[in-house]
């Protein structure tokens, strides 16, 4: 029961990643691509946490944490680049 529910949520997350990738490839402007990159990161954090539950390894949670930190930093730096240059 629990596993079936988890696999259904994995399917939904996979669909979400595909849709964000559609916007990432199509995206008219660079900002569009950065937005979909941001959303992809957040989806990946959820995905990593689910996978760490399925495989039973707590170390993946640290990966999710560091991944979130880095992507936040990247978004801030890119936005700053657009406004002022480096």
């Amino acid at each position: 029961m629990v596993n079936i529910l988890l696999y259904i949520s994995l399917i939904f997350i996979g669909l979400a990643i595909i849709l964000s990738l559609v916007r990432f490839i199509k995206g008219n402007t660079t900002i569009d691509r950065i937005i979909s990159f941001d959303v992809l990161t957040i989806i990946s954090i959820a995905l990593i946490v689910i996978i760490s539950h399925i495989s039973g390894r707590a170390i993946y949670l640290d990966v999710a944490l560091v991944y979130g930190l880095l992507s936040f930093l990247v978004v801030i730096i890119i936005a700053r680049y657009f406004e002022k240059g480096l």
């Binding site: 988890l6 259904i8 949520s9 939904f12 979400a16 916007r23 959303v39």
Partner: peptide
């Protein structure tokens, strides 16, 4: 978890 993943899916749908 399932409800959360449905929201993630809807968010990406909105993105498109």
């Amino acid at each position: 978890t399932l409800i959360g993943s449905i929201f993630l899916f809807l968010g990406s749908l909105g993105l498109v």
